[in-house]
Simulated assay, not measured.
Amino acid sequence: MPAIDLNRCTGCGWCVAACPPHVLSLHVLPGSGWGIKRAVLDDATGCTGCALCALRCPMDAIRMVRRAPKT
């Protein structure tokens, strides 16, 4: 599952475009007068773990982490 470092993310959208199941999107940060956007994982259950988002991110803002096993 992608873990997004919001301090490194520039909101460029490359990860969103690379995501086959379309579970990532750009959101405007609350309180950002300039409309600053960051990538957000909207649907963790729909993520396939393909890591294309992490591979495509030019800022190395996404790393893949293992999900907890389902019980």
Rank of each mutant, 00 (worst) to 15 (best):
31 G>Y: 08
31 G>I: 12
56 R>S: 10
59 M>H: 15
69 P>Q: 02
7 N>C: 09
35 G>E: 06
37 K>D: 04
37 K>W: 10
51 A>V: 09
32 S>P: 02
64 M>I: 11
56 R>P: 06
69 P>R: 05
44 A>M: 13
48 T>L: 01
20 P>Q: 07
14 W>C: 03
55 L>A: 15
40 V>T: 14
18 A>D: 04
63 R>T: 11
60 D>M: 02
19 C>Y: 04
15 C>N: 02
63 R>H: 08
40 V>S: 08
62 I>H: 06
42 D>R: 15
48 T>P: 00
51 A>W: 10
60 D>E: 13
36 I>T: 13
39 A>S: 07
16 V>K: 12
58 P>Q: 06
24 L>E: 00
7 N>P: 03
20 P>S: 04
34 W>D: 15
41 L>M: 08
46 G>Y: 15
54 A>I: 03
52 L>Q: 06
49 G>E: 07
30 P>S: 04
35 G>V: 05
51 A>F: 04
44 A>Y: 12
46 G>C: 14
44 A>W: 12
16 V>Q: 09
64 M>W: 07
63 R>W: 02
17 A>K: 14
56 R>D: 03
20 P>V: 01
58 P>F: 00
64 M>H: 03
70 K>D: 01
1 M>S: 15
43 D>Q: 12
28 V>P: 04
55 L>P: 12
43 D>Y: 14
23 V>L: 11
31 G>H: 05
35 G>H: 07
38 R>P: 08
28 V>C: 07
25 S>T: 07
63 R>S: 05
24 L>C: 00
65 V>Y: 11
25 S>A: 12
23 V>E: 05
3 A>F: 13
36 I>P: 05
51 A>G: 07
48 T>F: 02
32 S>Q: 01
24 L>W: 00
39 A>I: 04
67 R>G: 03
23 V>Q: 04
7 N>H: 12
33 G>N: 11
64 M>C: 09
23 V>A: 10
43 D>W: 10
16 V>G: 08
24 L>P: 00
5 D>C: 05
34 W>N: 13
6 L>F: 03
24 L>M: 00
10 T>L: 01
10 T>C: 00
16 V>S: 12
38 R>S: 11
11 G>A: 11
63 R>E: 03
28 V>H: 04
15 C>P: 08
67 R>Q: 08
4 I>V: 15
66 R>Q: 12
21 P>W: 10
29 L>E: 09
35 G>W: 13
18 A>H: 10
71 T>S: 10
68 A>R: 09
1 M>P: 13
59 M>T: 03
12 C>L: 05
39 A>T: 13
21 P>E: 11
43 D>L: 10
58 P>M: 00
33 G>Y: 12
12 C>G: 15
3 A>G: 06
63 R>Q: 08
19 C>F: 07
